[in-house]
Simulated scan of single mutants.
Amino acid sequence: MADRDDPLPTLESAAAELPLAIGQLRRRLRRATGDSNLSWSQLSVLSRLSKEGAMSTSQLARSESMRPQSMGVLLAGLEQRGLVHREDHLSDRRQVIFHLTPAGAATNGQRRMARQEWLLRAISALSTEEQRTLVAAIKLLKQLGDSE
């Protein structure tokens, strides 16, 4: 049996439990927002285009940690649904840039609002101390996401 002062089992446990907890939260958010007909990657691209504006396929692929070919397939699906549209790149005619359509912006806005409403209700049910812990954990999760 490991010594209680040995942090390794705790770190191993955290490393095993964190992806499970994140997956469970993602599934719960997906149910709350009614996003069953779009993949998580598609929703992420809609959100990124909403926040950062028009981007090329290669820019989106880098920002989403995907291969450009995979991003191209994903964008084609969003374009077919009328959620994004393409335009020629202003400085490089070999590239195209993608924008949200009004339908894509509406889909993203409805999703964001539903997600935020559910999260506010869920977070409000936590104790004040749990809310403080969650705020601190969010900063750490962002730090983990930015690490190599």
Rank of each mutant, 00 (worst) to 15 (best):
G82S: 00
R115N: 00
S63T: 06
S41M: 09
R132G: 10
D88H: 09
G77P: 00
R28I: 04
A76V: 00
R26G: 03
R86T: 04
A76R: 14
L83D: 00
A54G: 12
Q80Y: 13
A122T: 00
Q143H: 07
A106W: 02
L78P: 12
S58C: 03
H99Y: 15
E17I: 13
D88Q: 11
T133F: 00
E17D: 14
R26Y: 15
R30K: 08
W40R: 11
L18P: 06
L43S: 01
S41L: 14
S127R: 09
W40M: 10
R121I: 00
L18E: 01
K142C: 12
S91A: 11
Q116S: 14
L119H: 01
E52L: 15
R112I: 00
S63E: 09
G77K: 13
S70M: 11
L29G: 06
R28T: 01
D35L: 07
V96F: 02
P19L: 02
F98T: 14
T133I: 05
E87M: 14
Q116A: 09
R27S: 05
P68D: 10
A54E: 11
L140F: 06
G34M: 07
H85W: 12
G77Y: 10
S91Q: 15
N108F: 07
H89Q: 07
Q116M: 10
L29M: 06
G77A: 03
T101L: 04
L46P: 06
W118L: 03
L100T: 11
T33S: 09
V96G: 07
A137H: 06
R112M: 01
S36W: 01
L25T: 03
L25Y: 03
H85I: 14
K142Y: 10
A106D: 10
L29K: 06
A125L: 10
R81E: 06
L120F: 01
L43Y: 00
S58Q: 06
R26H: 07
H85K: 15
A137D: 08
K51T: 15
S70Q: 13
V135D: 07
L78K: 09
Q59P: 00
R48L: 14
I123W: 01
G53N: 15
S127E: 04
T33D: 12
L119D: 00
S58T: 04
Q95A: 14
L120A: 11
A54M: 14
L60D: 03
L38W: 02
R93K: 05
L49I: 12
L18G: 03
L43N: 08
R62Q: 07
Q110S: 07
E129A: 15
H85V: 13
T128L: 09
L38T: 01
L18Y: 06
M66V: 08
A103D: 14
L90C: 03
R30N: 13
A54S: 15
L46R: 03
S58D: 04
M55L: 13
H99R: 12
G72E: 13
Q59M: 05
A114C: 02
I138Y: 01
S124G: 11
R132W: 14
G104K: 05
R112K: 08
K142G: 11
P102L: 07
S124F: 02
M55R: 07
A76W: 05
Q80H: 06
L140A: 10
R48A: 12
L134Q: 13
R81N: 03
L43A: 02
E79P: 10
R31H: 04
L78S: 03
R81L: 06
